[in-house]
Write a protein that binds this DNA or RNA. Structure first.
Length: 945
DNA sequence: CGGCTAACTTTTTTT
DNA sequence: AAGTTAGCCG
């Protein structure tokens, strides 16, 4: 973009006054903001330090600076200290410079100094908070009742953060300014919501939504005997409305004790954090706000002549208020797009932008209640709309609007007219209109997506625009966007098996990656020869489950693995151990890099023992902490990202995958224990003593009723989809698995059944591949196990859960019954096995080892594995594998396994007729299996090579 | 058509 | 935990 359009120019030119800019996706927002900034600071009497430019990520701040330097008279050196930063970093700066005594303003006798750290890792904070809660509950036996009614103490931390994000802070003996009002809730506001939701539908023929929702009142919950009956709450059978009095009844609750409890936890945790010399993200803003609010001279001193806030839809309530305190004049410009507000979990309040005017008035009134802090005029407010889109084709822009009005379920109502009214439609300036917008579906969604990607690459129906010309698409033009990280990871690993170049970009649960698991395994081996360690290492080396079991039982570990263990044991630091493990397994990908850095950063801070590191990794696996991983630049590979991670980015071709059944609607924070909700108030379960004085937790019927008045709905989900769709420049593909969700079903696009047919890629170099591992060659039998002939996913599915439990136990039973004979069956599976075994004459062998060289196609290969049961008679040999009926759908896979045994046993018993079968233990029935020919087995084995 | 109930589904994002 | 859906009944 080299020249600006009219709307952009309007904004760039008008520097003074309040501006609310609706800047839709791809409308050149960054361009406009940076040009406007340049214009402002290029005025004679304005310096960069007079202009605050707030972004929501540090990356965005850096990008802004870079682009500003390119377009104004100031250089990077002069702008390096300019306030172009996030709210958090600005607050941090303010506290470092002026915040020494800020805690005293809340009655906390501590100081914020240069050594006060900001805890960025929320898991570290959680463990601190747990320790705090342990102490707090010891010190406050009077709150025992509350703690018994709180399932997970860490939820309280979420509550504190939520309160902080709304500007509700505790003082030594009460609440800061008018904070308590929020805790009491606002009955009138509640009444409005209640009445709205309680309107009968269909001209009075149908009950209100609220009454319908209360249908399950009291189900699976335990209320005190004095709780109203369902009829009192809902009115009798056939009534259309909840009785009006219920609103008052449900709302009126004595909250004094609960408020005291929350207050004391909040205030004492602030003191605890400061005594430990740390602040979290929320507390940075909290103390900065208190400081700016109380210290009028400081506020005057810090305040800026110009304030610009980018991505305003991502701001929280406290951030809006902070912005007001930080603005010296009404030269306030907020830029954003309500349609892209997807960060409510980070306390973003979309109302900041959708209801800017009323919020501005309300917040200014609040801030000016006791002292005029905001002295500038709040009118006029100039609205500017950026409508020219530089990213996508018109077809994609038009289509993306559907996502905002598409009901997510049959009962989901979208007020289409109101929403449409709010949408500022974008107009594309793309050179050509050649968009493909399509949807595919197959139960093997991963494979279907990969098939589609291969169909797209090099296909002239999917040409992409580059410098005004069209060219054929490459892997690097395609991004797969998903809602969940898990789907992305799964897709990545499937792509890897096909050698299709694909790389993940964004936060991953690092400790759940393969390198982390293997490192943990070796650490456990070093520490205690733990079975949990050896099992992982052996399995990774290609040993079958049966072989692993054998090695673990005999404790005869392969010599080269033992040698490797000694080598590791000789290393002095755990960092060295990690490095050696990763190099041994050729883990040189991004995961291993980040892992190493993480370990070393922890290690250098303290002296970490092996045991400590084991616990550290275990903890990381447990709480799923995430770390950033980035695809290497310049690689021609498909990008996989979560939609959140892709916000602000663009891709020529977007595959919007995992469009399957709906996620659970937003819980809005913190489950059922205690949640605050402005304006309604606090909710909780309650603790009561029974007739004998024993405490019991009862559900709070009032909170159940109030909760039904807080419809959460699918609005943010719709916006998430909108964000995903508007990332696409030229083409858009939706992909669903078995259960396409209501969105994709309702969108005006045909869903094509796509039979997956993924071609093997020619190179695996461009994948984010670190899964090709070279391990010490096992000493045991060389070659292929029947299990390696089977598709992993099928095997796992069968092997999972009940299958394993039944399988193993049944197997044990069969073995003992054959060898010892005096075992009683304890369940149906075993009873079936018993009667089956009783019906057989001849010799029975169980757990038959089948380590045997087999010549296939002139090549000697060794097959290893265990046969469940071999039934030998004078003329026949029958191979029987025990499966639960869970295995039925995988019969074809088991056929491969059995075929191998078949050919081995054919060699063993050349004179007898060998047959194979599967005994389904759940049914007590044996099914004959036709073995595959030797040449077919050879083919399977060569596929593995 | 509307009310009601039981069964079923899903469980994330990151400054 | 809180939403949807299917199926029954009036």
């Amino acid at each position: 973009m080299t020249a600006s359009n009219d709307q952009q120019q309007d904004l760039i030119d008008s520097k003074r006054g309040i501006h609310v800019v609706d800047a839709g996706a791809g409308t050149g927002k960054t361009f406009t903001v940076t040009r406007r900034y340049a214009e402002i600071v290029d005025q004679d009497d304005v310096e960069p330090e007079d202009v605050l430019l707030v972004t929501f990520t540090n990356n965005a701040a850096t990008e802004m600076k870079d682009r500003i330097v390119a377009h104004c008279d100031y250089g990077m050196r002069e702008l390096s200290d300019a306030p172009i930063q996030t709210f958090h970093s600005l607050c941090h700066d303010i506290l470092m410079e002026h915040g020494f005594e800020a805690p005293t303003l809340l009655g906390i006798d501590d100081r914020i100094t240069g050594s006060t750290r900001v805890l960025e890792d929320e898991n570290v904070e959680k463990s601190q908070f747990r320790e705090f809660i342990r102490r707090f509950s010891d010190d406050h036996p009077e709150y025992d009742d509350f703690f018994r009614a709180v399932t997970e103490p860490v939820e309280l931390l979420g509550l504190l953060n939520q309160l902080a994000a709304k500007g509700v802070f505790p003082t030594a003996d009460g609440w800061y300014r008018n904070g308590e009002r929020h805790l009491d809730g606002d009955f009138d506001a509640f009444r409005e919501v209640f009445d709205e939701l309680n309107q009968p539908r269909n001209d009075g023929n149908k009950q209100s939504e609220l009454r319908s929702k209360l249908g399950g009142y009291g189900n699976d919950t335990c209320y005190l005997p004095d709780a109203p009956e369902e009829d009192e709450i809902r009115g009798g059978w056939g009534e259309k409305q909840v009785p009006a009095a219920v609103a008052r009844l449900a709302f009126d609750e004595r909250r004094a004790d609960l408020k005291n409890f929350v207050h004391d936890v909040y205030h004492e945790y602030l003191a605890f954090a400061l005594s430990r010399n740390y602040l979290n993200f929320s507390f940075l803003q909290l103390f900065a706000f208190v400081l700016l609010c109380d210290d009028h001279r400081l506020r005057d001193d810090v305040a800026f002549e110009y304030v610009m806030i980018d991505e305003f839809q991502d701001s929280s309530e406290i951030q809006f208020k902070l912005a007001l305190l930080l603005a010296d004049t009404n030269n306030v410009c907020v830029v954003g797009d309500w349609k892209q507000s997807i960060y409510s979990f980070q306390y973003a309040a979309v109302e900041n932008i959708t209801e800017f005017e009323s919020r501005l008035d309300r917040f200014v009134d609040e801030l000016n209640g006791d002292h005029e802090r905001v002295s500038w005029a709040t009118r006029p407010i100039i609205d500017i709309e950026l409508v020219e889109n530089y990213r996508s084709t018109q077809a994609i822009l038009d289509f993306s609007e559907h996502s905002l009005v598409t009901p997510a379920a049959s009962t989901d109502d979208v007020d289409e007219a109101t929403v449409r009214d709010r949408i500022v439609s974008l107009s594309s300036n793309a050179a050509c209109e050649h968009s493909q917008i399509e949807a595919i579906q197959h139960e093997d969604e991963h494979e279907a997506v990969l098939t589609k990607i291969q169909e797209i690459v090099g296909n002239d129906a999917y040409q992409v625009e580059e410098d005004g010309d069209l060219r054929l698409p490459e892997y690097g033009d395609i991004a797969v966007l998903t809602r969940t990280r898990d789907f992305g990871r799964e897709l990545l690993s499937v792509a890897e098996t096909y050698g299709l170049p694909m790389a993940y970009d964004g936060g991953i649960e690092l400790f759940r990656s393969d390198p982390a698991k293997l490192l943990l395994a070796w650490l456990r081996i070093l520490e205690s020869d733990a079975e949990r360690g050896w099992a992982v290492v052996l399995e990774e080396a290609g040993y079958t489950l049966d072989e692993v079991e054998h090695v673990l039982d005999s404790e005869e570990y392969p010599a080269n693995m033992q040698a490797f263990k000694s080598e590791l044991a000789a290393l002095e630091t755990v960092g060295g151990v990690a490095r050696r493990v990763f190099s041994q397994y050729d883990y040189d990908g991004a995961d291993a890099d980040v892992l190493l850095t993480t370990i070393q950063s922890v290690h250098s801070a303290t002296t970490l023992t092996r045991g400590d590191l084991i616990r550290f990794v275990e903890r990381g696996i447990e709480d799923g902490s995430t770390h950033e991983v980035h695809a290497s630049a310049g690689m021609n590979s498909v990008t996989v990202q979560t939609i959140h991670a892709a916000k602000g980015l663009e891709h020529p071709i977007v595959v919007l995958a995992n469009m399957n059944s709906h996620r659970f609607p937003p819980s809005g924070g913190n489950g059922n224990a205690i949640t605050f909700d402005d304006p309604i108030g606090l909710r909780q379960r309650k603790l009561y003593a029974d007739d004998h004085g024993y405490p019991h937790v009862h559900d709070n019927w009032r909170s159940d009723v109030l909760r039904k008045c807080l419809p959460r709905g699918y609005d943010e989900e719709r916006r998430l989809l909108y964000v995903a769709m508007t990332r696409a420049e030229s083409h858009l593909v939706f992909a669903a698995g078995e259960s396409p969700n209501a969105f994709i079903e309702a969108l005006p696009v045909d869903i094509e059944d796509l039979e997956p047919d993924v071609r093997e890629g020619d190179s695996s170099e461009t994948t984010q591949g670190h899964l090709q591992i070279s391990v010490p060659t096992p000493d045991g039998p060389v070659g292929h196990s029947p299990h390696t002939l089977m598709r992993d996913d099928v095997f796992e599915e069968v092997d999972d859960g009940r299958g394993t439990a039944f399988g193993t136990k049944t197997h044990e039973f069969a073995e003992r019954y054959v060898l010892e004979g005096d075992v009683e069956p304890s369940n149906d599976h075993e009873r079936h096995v018993k009667s089956f075994l009783d019906s057989l004459d001849g010799e029975l062998r169980v757990e038959e080892d089948a380590y045997l060289p087999l010549t296939v196609d002139g090549e000697r290969v060794t097959i290893s594995g265990i046969v469940d049961l071999v039934h030998i008679r004078p003329d026949t040999v029958e191979i029987i594998d025990f499966k639960t009926d869970l295995g039925r759908h995988a019969e074809d896979e088991y056929r491969k396994q059995l075929s191998v045994y078949y050919h081995v046993l054919n060699d063993w018993f050349p004179d007898r007729d060998v047959t194979t079968g599967i005994f389904y233990t759940a049914e007590g029935r044996c099914v004959d299996i036709d073995p595959l020919s030797l040449s077919k087995v050879a083919e399977l084995i060569s596929e593995i090579h």
